[in-house]
């Protein structure tokens, strides 16, 4: 059937309008989430003041003095810091292996392992670490188990990201580096890896954002204790996302307010890290 140009133009206009409308609809929730987190979070933090909110322990049942998220924040810093350090130490050599032995079976196998692990539900990582460290080694919830679980969650992502950054190093730079005649170890870590430092750093930053925001791996590992500062790795502790999860389910207003305040702190960290990553590279790959 001959289609008139007018009908096609109309179809074009309507179709494009629908696409734009659906695209807007898909980003609206995030905007509303940000709005809600800011409004409720500011309200909760303002009641006690930013400094006290960030440093004091919570009193979820005390409407007069709800306290803050100090211990959870310190716990989060401890867990994320450890996870990032250990994950980097393993992810970097793994990514070097993937990038340096391109085309070999061991390189493809390692990449496949990492890609598979990236897609693994984080709750499964948490359960595994529970079985090994909580159930068998330590015999109770502990911060070490949380740090290990977070490490395992971000490790594969960081390995994939770093290997992509290393692969992006121009062949000319690689050849020039090798032509200097140093050992391969020196060549790769002193010359080739620095050429990919921005990409690697972005991987670490996104890893940090994930480590700071993940809840499921901590559900069955760290226990969730917020009254005092628990830094010992073999004892229970807490973290900001886990605290949000537990406090929002309590039927008490102060507990829920604390959760919203904690959410604002968490989102601020995430946005800050994302902006930093964006300053380093144009395209941030968050998959």
């Amino acid at each position: 059937m001959p289609r008139s140009l007018r009908a096609r133009k109309l179809e074009n206009a309507v179709g494009l309008a629908v696409i734009v409308a659906l695209a807007i609809a898909s980003v609206l929730p995030l905007i509303h989430i940000l709005y809600m987190v800011i409004v409720r979070g500011v309200e909760a933090i303002a009641r006690i003041g930013l400094y006290r909110f960030l440093t004091e322990p919570p009193h979820p049942f005390d409407p007069q003095n709800p306290g803050g998220i100090g211990p959870a924040l310190v716990g989060s810093l401890e867990l994320s810091g450890l996870a990032i350090a250990v994950a980097t130490l393993i992810a970097l050599p793994a990514s070097v292996l993937i990038a340096e032995f391109r085309g070999s079976r061991i390189s493809r196998g390692t990449l496949l392992l990492a890609l598979t692990l990236v897609e693994f539900p984080t709750i499964l990582v948490g359960l595994t670490v529970y079985a090994v460290l909580v159930d068998h080694v330590v015999g109770g919830y502990n911060m070490l188990a949380g740090a290990v679980a977070l490490t395992l969650v971000i490790l594969p992502y960081m390995a994939v990201q770093a290997s992509e950054a290393l692969r992006g190093v121009p062949e000319g730079v690689r050849e020039a580096a090798y032509s200097l005649g140093a050992t391969r170890l020196k060549t790769v870590y002193a010359l080739i890896a620095p050429a990919a430092r921005r990409g690697i750093l972005v991987g670490i930053l996104i890893g940090l954002a994930r480590a700071a925001g993940e809840t499921a791996p901590l559900l069955f590992t760290v226990g969730g204790a917020y009254e005092g500062y628990h830094l010992c790795l073999y004892k229970v502790g807490g973290a900001v996302p886990l605290m949000i999860y537990q406090f929002i389910q309590m039927p008490y207003k102060p507990a829920q307010d604390l959760a919203w305040g904690a959410a604002l702190v968490l989102m601020t960290i995430i946005v800050g890290v994302m902006l930093l990553a964006r300053l380093l590279v144009k395209e941030v790959k968050i998959l």
């Binding site: 987190v37 999860y245 929002i248 968490l266 994302m274």
Partner: peptide, 11 residues
């Protein structure tokens, strides 16, 4: 994509 799932849960 980077927003933690707990934040979505809260919302």
């Amino acid at each position: 994509a980077a927003t933690p799932t707990i934040i979505y849960g809260l919302w």
